[in-house]
């Protein structure tokens, strides 16, 4: 009885997945997105990129939530954060996640970069992914720095002031850079508006597509070291894909299964 019910439910599930796959390609897409061979040696070190992606996603999500309360004006910025921390339900948790995961993010990016460097993953043909990564870390650093200033407390204010003054030492265009960052020749309401615009709109808008390019390039070339360490597995995978394209899905031993059965793991 139980066995029959389980089988029936499994059958429905499979039908539903087949129906979705036929119309959206969701199953094959998920397989394509989730499965990536990584080198056997130092396998856990190859999760640092995913950890970075997770933390960035967490930043986006908690950041959106904080925007329900944060007020980007010199009069109210600090008070609105004080409200989040003391009055709003789960305010401490949401802001704490945003704050601590931002700190952790920079740390994990550092580790990710060290791993990439030490494993030689920046070498041909992956140079452009390293370059994109450098732009990503720059943007994340400016985001962390501008997030610090958004609190508009003594620490954040002076940090932004010092940062802006550093920018004023840029050769030839120093005064243009600092006045653009301050929104004038003094720090005031315009400064906070600018920091807000940078932190919440401009930089995330640049960051998101660059993350896309970073991931696309990773998938295009695969993890470094994966090809020779997994050559056998890759050969088998290619053979299977070829079979699938010709006959539909195949069993582990290469036998052709029922057409349209995609419940097989990739």
């Amino acid at each position: 009885m139980i066995a029959r019910t389980t089988a029936r439910i499994r059958g429905w599930g499979r039908d539903l997945m087949d129906w979705m796959e036929e119309r959206t390609g969701i199953v094959s897409l998920t397989e394509k997105l989730l499965y990536e061979p990584t080198p056997a040696r130092g396998r856990w070190l190859y999760t640092l990129g995913s950890a970075t992606l997770f933390l960035i996603t967490l930043q986006f999500l908690t950041g959106i939530l904080l925007l329900f309360y944060y007020v980007p004006t010199t009069d109210n910025a600090w008070d609105s954060i004080h409200y989040i921390m003391t009055q709003a339900y789960f305010g401490r948790l949401i802001r704490g996640m945003h704050f601590w995961s931002a700190n952790l993010l920079l740390f994990v990016i550092g580790l990710h970069m060290v791993r990439t460097f030490l494993s030689g993953s920046y070498k041909a043909p992956r140079e452009m992914n390293w370059v994109v990564g450098v732009f990503l870390i720059l943007i994340v650093t400016i985001m962390a720095f501008s997030g610090y200033a958004l609190r508009w407390d003594q620490e954040g204010f002076w940090a932004w002031e010092v940062g802006a003054m550093i920018s004023s030492y840029t050769p030839l265009i120093g005064s243009w850079v600092i006045t653009t960052l301050l929104g004038g020749d003094t720090a005031g309401p315009a400064t906070l508006s600018r920091v807000f615009a940078l932190h919440v709109w401009l930089l995330p808008a640049v960051l998101a597509p660059l993350i896309g390019v970073h991931l696309y390039l990773l998938r295009k070339h695969g993890e470094f070291g994966a090809t020779f360490e997994y050559s056998e597995r890759l050969a088998a995978l290619r053979k299977r894909r070829q079979m699938e394209e010709t006959f539909g899905s195949v069993e582990e031993d290469g036998q052709v299964a029922d057409a349209g059965d995609h419940s097989q793991e990739g």
Binding site: S175, W176, V177, T179, T180, L182, G183, G184, D185, A190
Partner: peptide
């Protein structure tokens, strides 16, 4: 975006 820089500089 550069309005303040143009006015100041």
């Amino acid at each position: 975006v550069l309005d303040p820089a143009i006015k100041d500089v």
